[in-house]
């Protein structure tokens, strides 16, 4: 540090300006470095994996020979698990968010639930995997199935959807509620008829972010014990006979894309690393697109509110 009593006013101002500029430059360089890392990561995946993605890769089962292996069972598994996760997490999370924001009285139980949601958001994902292993698989005997994986991921992203719902509901003007009450609507008519529709874009944003988190999540699914070598597809959800839909697939063994990728990364042969990069690139593209979609939606929403 320079001793400022020795300096003239002009020098003090100049040195202050200089350190201002230096800090702004520092901030910008930290930022660019971070951007560079993300960019390098994306380019690395493209260089390693883009050439491997073709029709055969998407329609083949895993194989001992890296060049024959594909991700058919993995992407089908991911899609089915995501259906379960969305079907469980979105209704539960939205209902919980509505309750906390619109109904909850200020009491001990409400406080408990709120602290609990905050805490759950900070629990590592692998702990959810242990919950699923100890409770759903060992105690309830549900098996290493698509349903258990979907349920586990649903619990994992529940806090994300609850928080998004609460924020969306909180941003709805009080006048909407008052107008509905003034017209004679009761609480549920107001919440179900006016609050929920108005909050829909915000909830959708949260749901997309939550699903993008779930689709890339690996650790809890490993703990459940998903198999990495699955050379068959779960029973089809739609059948040729009445009632055309069946739920046998819920109880099927499965693998998902992140698991398949992890399996391939862990092998020593470079051929499998290429497969891992190709899987990772698809995963990366999906999560980045979903996140970008959520960000765009939020941006549109904020513009519409102004």
């Amino acid at each position: 540090m320079t001793d400022i009593s020795q300096l003239s006013e002009a020098e003090i101002i100049r040195s202050a300006r200089r350190s201002e500029k230096r800090f702004a430059l520092l901030g910008l360089s930290v930022l660019s470095l971070t951007m560079l890392v993300l960019l390098t990561l994306i380019i690395d995946f493209m260089v390693d994996g883009l050439g491997r993605i073709d029709y055969d890769f998407l329609t083949s089962f895993p194989s001992r020979r890296p060049n024959d292996a594909g991700i058919l069972s993995a992407w089908v598994g991911s899609a089915l698990v995501m259906i379960v996760t969305a079907a469980l997490a979105v209704p539960l999370g939205v209902a919980a968010g509505l309750y906390l924001e619109e109904y909850a009285p200020k009491n001990l139980i409400t406080n408990l639930i709120e602290i609990n949601v905050t805490n759950l958001a900070g629990v590592p994902s692998i702990i959810y995997g242990l919950l699923a292993l100890g409770l759903f698989i060992q105690m309830f005997g549900l098996g290493q199935t698509i349903f258990v994986a979907g349920l586990t991921l649903a619990l994992l992203i529940l806090p994300i959807i609850i928080v998004a719902t609460r924020e969306a509901v909180r941003s709805i003007p009080q006048e909407v509620r008052e107008a509905a009450f003034a017209l004679g609507a009761d609480k549920w008519q107001t919440v179900g008829g006016y609050i929920l529709p108005a909050a829909r874009p915000g909830i959708l944003t949260g749901a997309i972010v939550g699903m993008s988190r779930a689709i890339g999540e690996t650790a809890p699914i490993i703990t459940i014990g998903a198999l990495t070598f699955i050379a068959f597809l779960p029973p089809s959800p739609v059948g040729p006979e009445f009632p055309f839909i069946n739920f046998d697939w819920l109880g099927s063994p499965f693998t998902v894309m992140p698991i398949q990728m992890f399996n391939w990364v862990s092998r020593p042969q470079a051929g499998f690393h290429v497969n891992a990069a190709a899987t990772g690139l698809i995963l990366l593209a999906m999560t980045l697109l979903m996140n970008a979609g959520a960000i765009w939606l939020r941006y549109k929403l904020r513009r519409a509110m102004r």
């Binding site: 990561l41 995946f45 390693d48 990364v265 990366l284 980045l288």
Partner: peptide, 20 residues
Amino acid sequence: PFLELIAGVPTVAFGYFALL
């Protein structure tokens, strides 16, 4: 939003990036 994109990258992808 750019920082959110980083937070959205699957962790297994970061693992690949770190190792290889």
